[in-house]
Design a protein around this nucleic acid. Structure first.
Lengths: 358, 358
DNA sequence: CTGAAAGCGCTTACAG
DNA sequence: CTGAAAGCGCTTACAG
């Protein structure tokens, strides 16, 4: 069992080939699961690989071949629940596939944003990049990535692009479901706080709210809809307006959790009980939504699942047969996928106060 | 300006050398900032590198040399504020140094934990690994990393190891400061909720609390100290016990924010005003601590700074002169560094209720 | 101060 | 089904 390599150093493809009495090309075939290897040969090679605890070196595979086995994740705010979920989903899927996730935090408004992105992709040569909001909507970032010919998947972008793949959830239906939940509890005056106007998610969630009211024959009252900005502070401000109105809503649905928490804070200041005096619902299932009292009814964004799908798309695009598979045209169309969400009913929503019920 | 390379492909060291009329070795020297290159030669090479938009390929450098320019971050719970801060600090420092951060999420209790770690380090060959709690205290993980001879820095480990570098904050002083803040507000009966018993941070924070009481001549009353577990639920339970006591504390200092939020929830259930009836302080400056009402007084763990220092230590260990520098012995001692924290006073702490003030 | 040669550990393209 | 050769783009060790 005398091998030629130094005792401390790791086994290489040459060591495996020598011990298995085959060429390194055959070892390569086995580790890449390529066809055209006799079953017993394959088995013998695998046995030696296990014996030697052989692990192919990423840098060598990357330099010689067309793949780097690296997926990049570009994000802006690491403390955001969205990014945490995405990262978790992406790392798990990467591990299953023998890939690794390289993360890079870039400031949305950095002057040298394009240089930062370029430096990353040209040094690392990742097989693909995943972009989270707001970077997936940043023209500078997208331009730099196009120039580098790096495949990308955008997660919940403001709008779908013809040349960039994307994965998102169904905001319209989710918002509709939450609104229906409130209606089912008996609410008739339901306030709605819109998100930042430049994001398509804002429009879609508003649409869902409107649809639910319409399908239940409830009137669409303008003063019940306030323009927020997806921030805690904007939630507070909108809540003040809604609470100050003569005919106060018995429920408020904010387009995200940050704003919903702002609403809860304002309710607390006014000594309004939640959900006794007013029910509150959010959107995102942020970590904080579970920690506040009462815990928030919200929508769980399938961030992990979105990331898994994104990694899957990126890896699939690598395969040599990827484009030929469905006859060229069809397969090369930029994919835009939608994944399922989940409503999370907690204790911040309940029946409307009796005195106010119609 | 006719170069020999294909129009679409990126420039290589050979392209640069040809255009600058030097050998590739000289180009290598320039890009690695090595001495022994005439100033005008260096300048000429740099000019060509800029012209060609040359970016050395990581996989080639890694395969040929002793460095991979990759730092690994091993973590367990991606939604934890601690990890988010660490990741942010690490990516920024990595970028400055031309390194990249590869993240890997592993379950603390996975059966194949050692295999997962081994697969990562032997494929990637990172120049160093950063471990966050609870993984930095996991014997299986540490053993696998030792076996792979991968340099590590542990962030806030339960206890310092002789052969593993670490970075942590000063828990004793931070807890002492928070307690002093409460004493300065006029509190005399201050409840304390301990963290999980197996973590040294729990002991240290408790120490800080005791020190502050002692230095102000306040009695150490046993019933004011409750054993928690760093979880929200344990915070709720400890709060119940503290609130149920005959002589209720006017302030409660929980060893982390999760528990402090549990205390706030319990106060809310009992209709106790915060800070009117009871002041509450936490530890961690988690995102939720800012979002609840009232926002929580807490300690900001310098997570980003800890990570920056960790990356710095890992990169410094790479330098060939690292061990020779201070005369061997001294320089090779395993470093354990402590970085500065910050007290964040928000609205959850105030003066004690007059009726109860002594 | 500068360079020619060898080699890192794989994959690619080709041959049998 | 299997393998010999060349090469990916850098760094290392050495020579001048």
């Amino acid at each position: 069992m005398a091998t030629s390599r130094a005792p401390g150093s790791a086994a290489t493809i040459t060591d495996v080939a020598a011990l298995a009495k085959v060429s390194i090309k055959t070892v390569s075939r086995v580790m890449n699961n390529e066809p055209g290897v006799r079953a017993d040969t394959r088995e013998a090679v695998m046995k030696v690989m296990a014996e030697l605890n052989y692990r192919p070196k990423l840098s060598a595979r990357s330099l010689a071949g067309a793949r780097s086995f690296l997926i990049g994740l570009l994000y802006f705010d690491p403390s955001a629940a969205f990014v945490a979920g995405v990262q978790q989903g992406a790392t798990l899927r990467c591990r299953e596939a023998g890939y690794h996730l390289v993360v890079e935090s870039v400031s949305d408004d950095a002057k040298d944003l394009d240089a930062q992105v370029d430096r990353m992709v040209s040094a690392l040569r990742p097989d693909g990049m995943i972009l989270t909001p707001p970077l997936c909507d940043n023209p500078t970032v997208l331009k730099a990535l196009r120039a580098a010919h790096t495949p990308c998947v955008l997660l919940s972008p403001k709008k779908d692009l013809d040349d960039m793949a994307s994965v998102r959830m169904d905001d319209v239906h989710a918002a509709e479901e939450i609104t229906r939940h409130l209606i089912a509890l008996g609410h008739r005056r339901i306030g709605f706080i819109k998100g930042a106007p430049d994001q398509i998610a804002s429009t879609r969630r508003h649409q869902g709210y409107l649809r639910a009211l319409k399908s239940h024959g409830l009137p669409l009252e303008k003063e019940l809809v306030q323009q927020g900005a997806f921030t805690y502070d904007s939630g507070v401000e909108c809540a003040q307006r809604l609470f100050d109105s003569d005919d106060r809503p018995t429920a408020i649905f904010a387009s995200n959790d940050d704003m919903a928490l702002g609403v809860m804070a304002e309710a607390g200041r006014r000594r309004l009980a939640v959900p006794g005096d007013v029910s509150i619902a959010g959107f995102d299932d942020s970590p904080a939504s579970r920690l506040v009292w009462p815990p928030l009814t919200t929508v769980r964004q399938p961030t992990g699942e979105m990331a898994r799908v994104a990694v899957e798309m990126l890896i699939a695009a690598q395969r040599p047969d990827a484009n030929a598979a469905e006859g060229g045209e069809a397969a090369s169309r930029t994919p835009h996928r939608v994944v399922a969400h989940e409503i999370v009913v907690r204790e911040s929503t309940g029946k409307p106060p009796k005195a106010r019920r119609r």
